[in-house]
Nucleic acid binder design. Structure first.
Lengths: 151, 151
DNA sequence: CGGCTTATTGCAACAGTGTTGCGTCTATCC
DNA sequence: GGATAGACGCAACACTGTTGCAATAAGCCG
């Protein structure tokens, strides 16, 4: 497992320089993906990223996007999380956060990872299990949906 | 949303009687699926269930299994959880538990839902969000995998 | 700058998981 | 035993992601 090098500055150039430093090539596809992720407020699925860069770079293939998301994660630039049923969502590692996902309306709330510190301690103490709150989402019912419940 | 009627006795007949009581028909497919779930120690994916009943009932279709798992969940007999990357897993509602899933080896530990009570309180207080610890899994690294990490 | 090497790409096909339309069948009710 | 609506089998589709392979191009070196 490569050492995790967090990317502090969230500018595209900063990230691309990091890639060069790690020995990875800076290609058109990678530049487009990194720019899309930097521009994205919050998180995006692989297909959303592919769609977002398709206007400026129509030739970039879906499989290239998938392969690069995987590689960019391996290089410590991105992280992905599973939101329950649907596709995984990616965001910059520098902008790491956890997710609450509503089972009813599907909204994904971004919340600080520190909220899981107690759970982390408990799971480690009782099961020797090191939790990874960036990788999974907490499913449930959001406040607006709960208030419109049939009583 | 139908009232949730938990199934106390975990015998197949008990569950099937519950179905009849709710106005659902007891068909060969449903009987086979319920028996497979009662016999299963722990949880099973939809495809595992389909494979398990295929020996005794080769004619039961994959789509029937999927449709019935959904219906049995709607009737409060089963619940499903997402284990991260792969397929969802089902178990009897009477045997409800949460999951810790190792990102490295894939093992799924069953843990009591009570472990999430603190998290539940926090999320409700800070975000008005009611968490559903049966529906998502906590991803991370299990003890055996962590101890074999390259330092 | 121009060639070399190999990482990266596009393409196309595939795999896993789940969903759906539709005509047929059958569990339940009488 | 017949009627009726729910359940089923089939086949095709949708979504998300993966892979083999030949062609391309990024970085290096002179």
């Amino acid at each position: 497992m490569p050492e995790a090098i967090p990317v502090d500055g969230a500018t595209a150039e900063h990230v691309l320089e990091h890639l060069r430093h790690r020995g990875a090539r800076v290609t058109t596809a990678r530049r487009a993906i990194v720019e899309a992720m930097v521009n994205a407020q919050g998180h995006r699925t692989a297909d959303e990223i592919a769609a977002a860069i398709h206007d400026a770079y129509p030739s970039i293939n879906r499989s290239t996007v998938y392969r690069n998301l995987e590689e960019l994660e391996r290089l410590g630039v991105l992280v992905h999380a599973h939101l329950g049923h649907g596709a995984a969502t990616y965001h910059l590692a520098a902008n790491a956060h956890s997710h609450l996902v509503c089972e009813r309306c599907g909204v994904a709330l971004s919340v600080p990872t520190e909220l899981f510190s107690e759970l982390s301690t408990t799971m480690l103490a009782q099961y020797g299990f090191t939790i990874d709150p960036l990788h999974f989402s907490v499913l449930g019912i959001c406040a607006p949906c709960r208030s419109t419940d049939a009583p």
